[in-house]
């Protein structure tokens, strides 16, 4: 996972592998997922894979990150609170936009963020 995240900085900013991996490790530490640093994708659960996707998006130089139906990407044990908590902990510089269908509306009831219908 570490290599997967570090790749973005290595390619776009020509950051040395070691430095890019330090940044990736720091980002994973913020969401208490250091343990998955050396995991391969099949060793991670849905929540961990989702977090890695978000961290990877954070590493990119895009101005906004669009997450489509995050609840469908997670397993039953995770909620929208987990998603928002990950985004908050990472202190991402980009604008985060979550797009979802009305069918998933109930998942957003307790969430403390702007909801536009």
């Amino acid at each position: 996972m570490l290599e997967n995240i570090a790749l973005i900085k290595e390619v776009h900013e020509h950051l040395a592998t070691k430095d890019a991996q330090v940044q990736a490790r720091e980002a994973l530490a913020k969401i208490n997922l250091q343990k998955i640093s050396l995991y391969r994708v099949h060793m991670c659960n849905a929540y961990e894979i989702f977090c890695v996707c978000v961290v990877r998006a954070m590493m990119s130089d895009d101005k906004s990150v669009i997450i489509i139906s995050p609840i469908n990407l997670l397993d039953n044990s995770s909620s929208m609170d987990d998603v928002v908590s990950v985004i908050k902990k990472l202190q991402m510089s980009q604008d985060i936009v979550i797009l979802d269908t009305l069918a998933n509306e109930t998942h957003y009831k307790e969430v403390s963020c702007n909801i536009v219908k």
Partner: peptide, 12 residues
Amino acid sequence: LRPKSYNPAMRM
């Protein structure tokens, strides 16, 4: 032949 191709990720 392009030096730009040889970024750290590629070298790894």
